[in-house]
Amino acid sequence: MAPINVVAIGASAGGVGALRSLVSELPASFSASILIVLHIGAHRSELPAILTASGPIPAKHAQDGEKIAPGQIYLAPPDRHMIVNNGSIRLLRGPKENCARPAVDPLFRSVAESYGPAAVGVILTGNLNDGTAGLYEIKRRGGIAIAQAAYDAAYPAMPTSAAAHVALDYCLPLAELAGLLQKLVERKTAKEPAVMNEFAAAKTEQEPEIVASGIFNRPITVTCPDCGGALKKFEHGSIIKFGCHIGHTYTAEIMESAQFEEMEKVIRAAVRFLNERAEFCLQMAELFHRSEPAQSSQWHEASKQALDRAYKLRDLVEQDWLTPETNHVVAERDGRVHSN
């Protein structure tokens, strides 16, 4: 087993509490470098101070170009992807991945490429599935893949996705992760056999949908919710991803969410324009109320029409929408996940 030089950790919702708990249990003698991405967006973050106060290992926001040192926690700063290259940290304001910047996947991919078997990837609590594709790369290049047990996570979606798509070496409750990491760094334990569910997806041809007595023609391509560029579908193991030429990438689950969010934005903008049209027409009706009653009536009808269509659009976007599951939950052995 190769010496462990880097531990890369990804978290989202519920991540602050999970990270505090984890670093509080790590010893001051922990010799590997720890690199952490928490989904903080562009918002100011006090996480370095929080984690430094929680345990014996100092934490800081990473700086572009600095050398990675052992026994140090590096955190991705707001609105920057954090990657590693030739033993140094790079901070990039590249395209968002899975609707996040910083995102977990870029860090994990770079750690996999730079450290191979000397890397550990850890997925903690969070929504959706950022980090799954990156953890797959760490595992593929000989590193160790770990996820918090889904039943133990405040938000289980991220560890559940990791368990569904990556042959995890360990899947443990949060309270046991620090001890495992210390054993791995001290090379006191070996990797467990990989266990992964087999997935089989039946492919069916999509028939044109009949809409209002006409044929709904399939679009030429699916476009990026961020920039409108054409998306290309590609696969990492059992993970389906979509990427545009700009560099925005989405897993299938996050693509579904981002696509709906963009659709909702467009429909609500249309509702606003219809409301404004209704108000404009009403003002015109009032203007002609005395001088030209017939024309005033036409403006009133136009205002009512705009309001009616605004209500229909509002009801359309607020009704329930089908959201097919694209992840499979890994069956837990004897009702529990395996541990070391």
Score class of each variant (00 low, 15 high):
Met1Asn: 10
Pro3Phe: 11
Ile4Thr: 14
Asn5Ala: 09
Asn5Lys: 15
Asn5Tyr: 13
Gly17Ala: 15
Arg20His: 03
Ser21Leu: 09
Ser29Val: 03
Ser33Ile: 12
Leu35Met: 03
Ile36Gly: 02
His39Met: 09
His43Arg: 13
Ala49Ile: 03
Ile57Asn: 01
Gly71Gln: 07
Pro78Val: 11
Asp79Ser: 10
Asp79Arg: 05
Asn85Ser: 14
Asn86Asp: 11
Asn86Val: 05
Ser88Leu: 06
Glu97Tyr: 08
Glu97Asp: 11
Arg101Val: 06
Val104Tyr: 10
Pro106Ala: 09
Leu107Asp: 04
Val111Thr: 03
Ala112Pro: 02
Val120Thr: 02
Leu124His: 04
Thr132Lys: 04
Thr132Cys: 15
Gly142Lys: 15
Gly142Ser: 12
Gly143Val: 12
Gly143Met: 14
Ala147His: 04
Ala150Met: 08
Ala157Trp: 13
Met158Ile: 12
Pro159Phe: 05
Ala162Met: 05
Ala163Val: 14
Ala163Gln: 04
Ala164Val: 03
Ala167Ser: 14
Leu168Ala: 06
Leu168Asp: 01
Leu168Gly: 02
Asp169Cys: 11
Tyr170His: 13
Tyr170Val: 02
Leu172Lys: 11
Ala178Glu: 01
Ala178Val: 09
Leu180Pro: 03
Leu181Asn: 02
Lys183Arg: 13
Val185His: 05
Ala194Ser: 12
Met196Ile: 10
Glu198Trp: 13
Ala200Cys: 08
Lys203Glu: 11
Thr204Phe: 13
Thr204Trp: 00
Ile210Asn: 01
Ala212His: 09
Ser213Val: 10
Arg218Lys: 14
Thr221Gly: 00
His236Ile: 15
Ile239Phe: 05
Ile239His: 01
Ile240Cys: 10
His245Leu: 06
Thr251Asn: 06
Glu253Tyr: 00
Ala258Thr: 09
Gln259Arg: 13
Phe260Ser: 02
Glu262Thr: 02
Val266Thr: 09
Ile267Trp: 05
Arg268Thr: 02
Ala269Val: 04
Ala270Asp: 05
Arg272Trp: 10
Ala278Thr: 00
Phe280Lys: 15
Phe280Trp: 10
Cys281Phe: 14
Leu282Cys: 05
Leu282Asn: 12
Gln283Arg: 15
Met284Val: 14
Ala285Lys: 13
Pro293Leu: 01
Ser296Ala: 14
Ser297Val: 00
Glu301Cys: 08
Lys304Val: 09
Leu307Tyr: 05
Tyr311Ala: 08
Lys312Ala: 11
Leu313Val: 02
Leu316Arg: 07
Val317Leu: 05
Leu322Trp: 14
Asn327Ile: 12
Ala331Thr: 15
Asp334Met: 10
Gly335Lys: 01
Arg336Lys: 14
